[in-house]
Nucleic acid binder design. Sequence first.
DNA 1: GCTTGCACCTCACGTGACGTGAGGACGGAA
DNA 2: TTCCGTCCTCACGTCACGTGAGGTGCAAGC
Lengths: 253, 253
Amino acid sequence: MGYSVGQVAGFAGVTVRTLHHYDEVGLLHPSSRSHAGHRRYDDADLDRLQQILYYRELGFPLDQVAVLLDGPATDPREHLRRQHELLTARIAELTRMAAAVERAMEARKMGINLTPEEKFEVFGDRDPEEYAAESERRWGGTHSYQESQRRIAGYGKEDWRRMRDEITAWGARYRALMEAGGAPGSEAAMELAEAHRQHISRWFFDCHRKIHEGLAEMYVTDPRFRAYYQSIHPGLPEHLREAIRANAGRAAG
Amino acid sequence: MGYSVGQVAGFAGVTVRTLHHYDEVGLLHPSSRSHAGHRRYDDADLDRLQQILYYRELGFPLDQVAVLLDGPATDPREHLRRQHELLTARIAELTRMAAAVERAMEARKMGINLTPEEKFEVFGDRDPEEYAAESERRWGGTHSYQESQRRIAGYGKEDWRRMRDEITAWGARYRALMEAGGAPGSEAAMELAEAHRQHISRWFFDCHRKIHEGLAEMYVTDPRFRAYYQSIHPGLPEHLREAIRANAGRAAG
DNA sequence: GCTTGCACCTCACGTGACGTGAGGACGGAA
DNA sequence: TTCCGTCCTCACGTCACGTGAGGTGCAAGC
């Protein structure tokens, strides 16, 4: 019953040392130990390892993976869905990079010399600071703001990229919803509103539904946020506001 | 004239420290220093940095990046082409992973329990050992074999993955060539044969054209290699052998 | 003329995710 | 009984930087 480190390492394509490490840092404790102190992994452990490897492949640091996996009440299906979103976003990003390489080749063929900014466009991040500054005016001094700042301070370049990947994937889903004519009160729209709320909770501050409704209002009135969400779809700000309200109402009712 | 560390860091989306590091390890020495000892980067430096960032994004360790960039007579266009190939391969890999996630979701919905092997299929590597063992019988004791073993010993899991990505990308190109009806003697085929040779030179041992012709013979006669190349396209082994011969002949003539 | 501020410099130690032995215990096969 | 393979626990090494500490050069404001 159960599998040894060697076996698990075998079909997961990782080293034994990696499994030891995950045990050390508390990311994956084998469900039991044999008489001789040997690690024994069961099927649930393997499922967890699978999730770990997906998140790791997506570039998450191990402590973040632990937060994701041990976070409040996230079932396996939710993880798989998120992983799929993130993979899709990553694919989109690489596709953009491939396109940039093609453009660079074209430019070379034509003998055009790109400006430095153009050369590195594809690597750019640019905006997060704006958001932080913008939020400061709105939320300065509140608890949400402070927690947000505290968390943001710990984020590196990679974290920002993943954050962007997540919201990019979310945007793609929301646009698809709107193009399919989905109503703000529909199940799918409320689900995306909920995903939006959880995105904020994960990355910035504990965003409960009341605060979320406040943000929703801001997305239609504040020009900067409005511009961002409109870049995904022209009617998105209003649509999202209604979806957030519906989602908040659902939870209250 | 030229750009400062801060400027370069700015539009390349990296930190100043990263540029310092690349200078330290000899990956990117700025073309000059100012009177005060400040680093000055020119347009050629920026081009190099761009290449570095692409290869880094693709997961290459910095010393390998240095080898790639300072390797024998590789012009910028060749780099861009290779980067495009690698990106395409990476996209294909992520697409496979996304498909695997979809399958996992399906399995969960249906309540099916996958075997451990099935769970981790997508992470698997499996084969490199076989190749090494196989090569040993053929090339044991020769200089090529020893150099190959020496290099292989230094490769980690990531290296193998990139190696596979490269050959996967190459396989896709070769299959496309054959599906388009390209002859073994055509320019495109010889170019791919040359790419194949360089792949071996980069990852295993200095494969000059005589040795390459020997390998070509092996690809049609040895069942293991034959099976591998046939998995890309049924007629590939013979086609590749002729292309390699043509390419070797071209260089000799 | 002097401070202030900013972007730059060079050490040099810290970190995350393992790699890589060292030295030893356990259990099945020859 | 002696191997052999797999497992164990330290514990130091590595790679690509992060993160201060402490100092320099130079333009702008007082």
